[in-house]
C-alpha cells in the first residue's frame, strides 16, 4: 500500500476540478446559501413569534403558542444543524459520481488501471478526492451558519447558542462518517452504472433513511440530544464498517472495465 499514490490521484483530480466549474460551483453555492439563509430565517421566525406574543399580550387573549420564543429558536437551531449531516451525504455523493464516472466516461480508467496501482490505492485516492473538498466546504459554511446564527439570535435567547456539544458531534463525528458512508456507497454504485445522473440519484435514494430520521427529529419522535446523536454515530460506524468489508468483494477491476453501459 503506497499512500502517496492515492494522493497523486487526488491531486490530479483537484487540478481537473478547475476546468469543471459547472460541476464544482453548485457544490459550493448550495451549502453557503443555506448557511446564510437559515440564520436569517431563524431571525425572521424569532421576530414573528415575538410579534405574535406582543399582539396576544395587547389583545389580552390567553396565550395560544406555548413556550417562550427563545425555546422555539433553539429547537430550530438544533434541527437546522442537522442539515449539515444531509450535506455530508449529498456533496460527497455528487463529487464521487463525477470523479469515478468521469474516468469511465473519458475512458481513462483503462490506462489508469494498467499502471502499477492497487485497487485500494485507487479507491482511496478517489475517496480523498471526494472527501476533502466536501469537508472543507461543509466546515466553512457551518462556521458561517454558527456565527450568523449567534449574531442574529443573541438578543432573543440571551446567550451564544453555538458552539455547543451537539454541533461538535455533528461536525466532528457525524459529518466525516456520513461523508465516508456516502462515498463508499457511491463507489459501489459507480462501479456498476455508467452515467453520473444515475449514480447520483441511486446514491440519494440510499439517503432516504436519513431523511426519515430527519422527519422523526422534526416531529420530535427522536430529539437531537447528545445521547441520540451518539446513537446515530454508532449506527453510522457500524454501517461504514459493514459496507467497507463488502465493497472489496463487490468492486473488482475486471467488472469495472467489462461492465457495459
Amino acid at each position: 500500500m503506497k499512500l502517496w499514490k492515492s494522493w497523486v490521484i487526488a491531486t490530479k483530480d483537484f487540478s481537473t476540478f478547475r476546468e469543471k466549474k459547472n460541476t464544482i460551483y453548485p457544490l459550493i453555492v448550495l451549502p453557503l446559501l443555506l448557511s446564510i439563509v437559515l440564520p436569517i430565517l431563524i431571525g425572521g421566525i424569532g421576530n414573528l413569534i415575538g410579534l405574535i406574543d406582543n399582539l396576544i399580550g395587547i389583545i389580552g387573549i390567553p396565550i395560544l403558542i406555548k413556550g417562550s420564543s427563545s425555546k422555539d429558536i433553539t429547537v430550530l437551531l438544533n434541527s437546522f444543524s442537522f442539515f449539515y449531516i444531509i450535506l455530508a451525504f449529498i456533496l460527497p455523493n455528487t463529487l464521487a459520481s463525477y470523479s469515478i464516472l468521469g474516468e469511465k466516461i473519458e475512458k481513462s480508467l483503462e490506462p489508469l488501471l494498467a499502471t502499477p496501482i492497487t485497487d485500494t490505492e485507487l479507491l482511496l485516492g478517489k475517496s480523498i478526492t471526494s472527501f476533502l473538498p466536501c469537508i472543507a466546504i461543509i466546515y466553512f459554511s457551518a462556521m458561517i451558519f454558527m456565527v450568523l446564527s449567534d449574531a442574529i439570535t443573541y438578543n432573543t435567547i440571551g446567550y451564544l447558542f453555538f458552539p455547543n456539544w451537539s454541533m461538535a458531534i455533528i461536525l466532528l463525528l457525524a459529518v466525516p462518517l456520513v461523508s465516508i458512508l456516502s462515498i463508499q456507497l457511491n463507489v459501489i454504485i459507480s462501479s456498476r452504472v455508467s452515467d453520473v445522473r444515475t449514480a447520483t440519484q441511486l446514491g440519494l435514494l440510499l439517503f432516504l433513511p436519513f431523511i426519515g430520521l430527519y422527519i422523526f427529529l422534526e416531529t420530535s419522535v427522536i430529539s437531537l440530544n447528545i445521547i441520540n446523536l451518539l446513537g446515530i454515530f454508532v449506527i453510522l460506524s457500524v454501517a461504514v464498517a459493514i459496507i467497507f468489508s463488502i465493497s472489496k468483494t463487490i468492486i473488482q477491476r475486471d467488472k469495472i472495465l467489462t461492465k457495459r453501459g
Partner: peptide, 17 residues
C-alpha cells in the same frame, strides 16, 4: 504492470489536463 506500457483502444487522456 510496471514493465509494460499500454496504448488502449481509446486514448483515455484527461481532457482537462
Amino acid at each position: 504492470r510496471k514493465i509494460i506500457g499500454l496504448l488502449p483502444e481509446n486514448n483515455g487522456l484527461y481532457d482537462d489536463l
